[in-house]
Design a protein around this nucleic acid. Structure first.
Length: 501
DNA sequence: ATAGCCTTGATA
DNA sequence: TATCAAGGCTAT
């Protein structure tokens, strides 16, 4: 308030100076301000955009407007920055008048603040970047991340320029992917990074788990270091909460119920759907050059490439995730070799539940495939697998399973205490218990049916497990008949489990 | 309430 | 010292 008052005085003084033209009356500070403004007008803004690199063309992941810089964790436009700030600072609560599926773009972003805010969170805007103390200026802990992201974008830009293609302006995934029963790809916002030939799993995991710690290693620290954003509004009872409660239950954005801290961390670990979509699409584009030489690939081969790339993203997710990154590489590999098909299936199923439409299968690339097409063209085995998958999607849909719960289920699958040959079995068992506890706590917070919801989720998990075994068997048969494209992670995974048995 | 522009201030 | 992401101000 005081600073606002001072600003008004300064502005009044500047206005007066402009009017009178009496530059001599200006204080030195005011001269600096004036100089800065002049710089803003001519040279300062363009270099800044240069600095951002590719973001000159990059669009806000929330509404598609022009990006103005990094705000609250990622590149966004000025309006979404302001919207996010207002929402968090003023602890606003919105309710969607529709089904929480409103389109957010430049023209419609004002229409539904609820969906806009959800999208802000979904694309990765960080609540904790909004300062509780409202202090201006300076830098926060995200600085290094912004720097890395900038470097990465520059690197991508260089690669894309060298490769001579881009995905968001060029033709959509060539006819080979595009034709037949797939709907066109949606507009993709950022320039994806084509990856090199798939390396084996062991080379994807760091030899020293601690070496993998980059930005996301704040997971553990968040257990001990209080987040920048704390609710100081003096909610009733907050003062009486114990330290343990403080760690496990924090006010959760707009919904009202308290979300266990651990669940929040799990959600934070979750890769962004759009980024994943871009990455895998880029990989498919790269594969395309190979296909052009050998004719169009079968739909099944395409699905294998998508599955393979999804596996890479799963490994990447696990590698940088809370608890998992603390494990020895051998245990990391054992766990991943053990759960890959469940993770893959969960990835597909959660996409249908969270974003999919009835009657079609939403692929990781954002394309849609008609279920009726699958039913009529796939083999009996595959059609029945898809059918069982759909039934599970339906169950989870009825339960209205949300991102938070899916994030927990991923960790439940990953830390499977029933896996043999683990060096640190005790740690994995205790992690599994912690995840289960967090999920239970979350379901108790969000559901009025007490243990019913939690039990239903565990039943679905059990169904997922049995289905994944069938999927593995099916894929292994296809592999034996030479239909699974070679040199990939999918095949490594298929072999890994068989070699134990 | 929104969104564009302005001020601030820790850090590289 | 320049940078740039925070918060602030204000016309719409």
């Amino acid at each position: 308030m005081e600073s606002g008052h001072r600003n008004r005085i300064e502005e009044a003084r500047e206005a007066h100076t402009r009017e009178t033209g009496n530059q001599l009356c200006l204080e030195r500070k005011n001269k600096t301000v004036a100089n800065q403004r002049e710089q803003n007008m001519d040279e300062r803004i363009p270099p800044r955009m240069e600095c951002i690199g590719v973001c000159v063309e990059e669009l806000c992941p929330v509404c598609g407007d022009k990006v103005s810089g990094y705000h609250y964790g990622l590149l966004t436009c000025e309006s979404c920055k302001g919207f996010f700030k207002r929402t968090v600072q003023n602890n606003k609560k919105y309710i969607c008048a529709e089904k929480q599926q409103c389109t957010i773009d430049i023209s419609q972003r004002k229409r539904c603040p609820s969906c806009r805010f959800h999208k802000c969170l979904h694309v990765g805007m960080r609540l904790e970047a909004v300062r509780a103390d409202r202090m201006r200026g300076g830098r926060n802990k995200f600085g290094p991340m912004y720097k890395r992201d900038r470097a990465l974008k520059q690197h991508r830009k260089a690669l894309i320029q060298a490769g001579g293609f881009r995905i968001d302006s060029g033709p959509p995934l060539g006819s080979s992917i595009h034709h037949r029963h797939l709907r066109p790809l949606p507009i993709l916002h950022s320039n994806p990074l084509p990856t090199a030939r798939p390396p084996p799993l062991c080379s994807l995991l760091p030899s020293d788990p601690l070496a993998a710690t980059q930005y996301q290693c704040t997971f553990f620290s968040s257990w001990t270091i209080k987040s920048e954003h704390t609710n100081n509004s003096g909610a009733p009872g907050s003062a009486a909460r114990t330290h343990s409660e403080e760690l496990h239950a924090r006010p959760f954005s707009q919904q009202g119920p308290r979300m266990p801290q651990l669940v929040m961390e799990f959600v934070r670990c979750d890769p962004d759907e759009l980024q994943l979509q871009n990455k895998i699409t880029a990989r498919l584009l790269q594969e395309q050059s190979g296909w052009e030489k050998h004719g169009n690939p079968s739909t099944f081969s395409l699905m294998c490439v998508m599955a393979d790339q999804t596996l890479f993203s799963i490994v990447e997710w696990a590698r940088t995730s809370i608890f998992f990154k603390e494990l020895k590489v051998n245990d990391q590999m054992t766990l991943l070799h053990s759960c890959w098909s469940e993770m893959l299936l969960l990835d597909i199923i959660s996409r249908q539940v969270l974003y999919g439409k009835v009657g079609s299968l939403l692929l990781v690339t954002g394309q849609e495939m008609e279920l009726s097409y699958i039913a009529s063209h796939a083999s009996l085995t595959l059609a029945s697998l898809v059918q069982r998958g759909q039934e599970l999607v339906e169950k989870l849909h009825i339960l209205k399973v949300d991102r938070q719960e899916f994030a927990c289920i991923k960790f439940l699958i990953l830390f499977n205490p029933d896996v043999k040959q683990l060096e640190d079995h005790q740690f994995i068992k205790s992690m599994h218990e912690q995840v289960e506890g967090a999920l239970l706590e979350y379901t108790l917070c969000t559901s009025s049916h007490l243990l019913g919801r939690f039990a239903h989720l565990l039943l679905c998990l059990s169904e997922l497990r049995s289905l994944s075994t069938l999927v593995e068997d099916y894929l292994y048969c296809k592999h034996l008949s030479g239909e699974v494209p070679c040199n990939n992670l999918l095949i490594e995974m298929l072999h890994a489990k068989r070699s134990w048995a």
